[in-house]
Design a protein around this nucleic acid. Structure first.
Length: 134
DNA sequence: GCCAACGTTGGC
DNA sequence: GCCAACGTTGGC
């Protein structure tokens, strides 16, 4: 069981959009590292949903409902999509500022690799974020 | 809205 | 195969 974090610019596709849609195809990833993480996601694994730019906070928990399949919008082969569905919103948003100020979260790729849009997160980190959001 | 940082592309 | 130029991302 792995845990993940994905980023979305809420002006493009927000947590509210996902809740309205009930589920969505997560496509358009064009970064090899992010692609490899996408491919290793399994159904039922949990995904923190992070808003970049305007909001800059983890806002909810989603679930992988379909594992990697070819990204139909890609010009080239070997790009993949998954499907996710919203599970629940966090009671309290976990802001980037808060994450940066929390020692136990300072190793997150979110901080070390600011431009990576799909990343793994450890179980400890995941649990801590849930605690902080209560 | 700006722009630094990063990843990718393509000319050599 | 190097690296300058370019496009994109996302924090500020």
């Amino acid at each position: 069981m792995a845990f993940w974090l994905i980023k979305s610019d809420p002006e493009e596709y927000s947590w509210d959009d996902l809740n309205r849609d009930k589920f969505t195809v997560w496509d358009g990833v064009r970064n090899y590292q992010a692609r490899n993480y996408l491919k290793s996601m399994k159904a039922g694994e949990l995904v923190l949903f992070y808003h970049s730019r305007i909001s800059q906070a983890i806002v909810g928990i989603a679930e992988v409902i379909r594992t990697a399949f070819p990204d139909l919008n890609a010009d080239e082969p070997d790009w993949y999509s998954i499907e996710i569905a919203p599970l629940r919103s966090l009671k309290k948003l976990i802001s980037l500022e808060h994450i940066k100020a929390t020692d136990a979260l300072s190793k997150l790729p979110l901080i070390l690799q600011p431009r990576l849009s799909v990343m793994p997160i450890s179980e400890d980190e995941f649990k801590l974020i849930l605690e902080l959001s209560n």
